[in-house]
Design a protein around this nucleic acid. Structure first.
Lengths: 199, 199
DNA sequence: CACGGATCGAACCGATCGGTACGATCTCGG
DNA sequence: CCGAGATCGTACCGATCGGTTCGATCCGTG
């Protein structure tokens, strides 16, 4: 039964639906852990439709990684902004938000880092690098507003904590990782603010 | 020409040679990035020999991850031990050693974490978890000897820094990652020692 | 109402996958 | 010096891979 019965024909909506459904499956099973045929069956779309919208499996992967990177970055940035003006509170909010994510049963680590770790395609690695850039911008901004002596340095150190906490939460699965990372981040922030010129 | 001409028939040595050569290829190309046929051609061994020694591609993967985890963990522990008795020096040595690794052109991140990120097989995930345990033991020991108030907590925070630095070095490729991580680790150690009862 | 395009389901393609089988050849221990 | 076993090269297996094609069917628009 092509074009089921009362479905709304809208390429944009179809593309978005594929992206959303494929994101969940590819995140859970891994990029190479599910073939295009099974993927199409799982998300309820024909191969022709998928290929018309994304051209290639890699094209789908890149599109979904790009969308996911933007979504997650904005999610973190909004959590920080909602925490008020104090950079300490903003940093704490970032790690609290991450901590909630870690406790989601569907949590499997950072999708971009996972993808770059297995898929040695340049486009994927570029998306991952840009994703880390987004995180770095957020964290460096907090470091600046906190009056750190060397905001770019502190930003990168906080980035390591973010990614490290994500890896540890994914593969060492002990509870409380978010909390522990937050304490470490705040300790680094305090130390850097004490060393540098306070505001 | 089976069994070339003057080769020494020694299954143990053959197995070790396969393991060593396969480790390099699988690390560079990714576990799913090279098939068994190509892998055998690259490391100069027949498929039958490989399968007799490891039974399965997954068997080879597990064996090589186990060996690599032990080797790398011992390497780090020895670097720490060689730095003397001061836990600060030991921690600095750990990150200096990591920093050297990051600058190796063949560096592609932590092989165990990469494997667990793509290969959702229980055995692989177990090897990765055990690998992180090894790291955690080393770091918690340093935290204890430094008189931290909560050595297990500090150990896990340092573990996040180690893994985070490795991820950032692999995917955000800026120089100086090891140095920056070392500064952060020492700052955390100092803060924890100041808070807790120093020896 | 008619036509273009979106979609489906299924068949199909060559390539590659992990894994097996086999005969030939060589080394080593008894 | 002979047999057991390690290794090679190659052919082969069924399954699956990413990707293409096609006719049928339905929605949207003019």
């Amino acid at each position: 039964m092509p074009v089921p019965k009362g479905s709304t024909i809208d390429p944009e909506r179809t593309r978005a639906a594929i992206l959303k459904a494929a994101t969940a499956v590819l995140y859970e099973r891994g990029l190479d852990g599910v073939g295009v045929a099974e993927l199409c069956a799982l998300i309820g779309v024909s191969k022709e439709t998928l290929y018309r919208h994304f051209g290639t499996k890699d094209g789908l992967v890149e599109a979904m990684l790009r969308a996911r990177s933007e979504r997650v970055s904005r999610w973190l940035a909004e959590a920080a902004a909602a925490a008020g003006d104090d950079p300490h509170d903003q940093l704490a909010a970032v790690f609290d938000t991450l901590g909630e994510w870690y406790e989601d049963p569907a949590f499997r680590g950072c999708a971009m880092v996972n993808a770059a770790a297995q898929h040695h395609v340049e486009a994927v690695r570029a998306v991952t690098a840009r994703h880390l850039d987004r995180y770095l911008d957020l964290l460096t901004g907090i470091a600046e507003r906190a009056g750190a002596a060397d905001p770019p340095l502190l930003g990168r150190q906080l980035l390591m904590l973010v990614e490290g906490a994500t890896v540890v939460a994914a593969h060492h699965g002990t509870a409380g990782t978010g909390e522990q990372a937050r304490q470490a981040a705040l300790a680094l922030l305090s130390a850097a603010a004490r060393t540098g010129g306070g505001d």
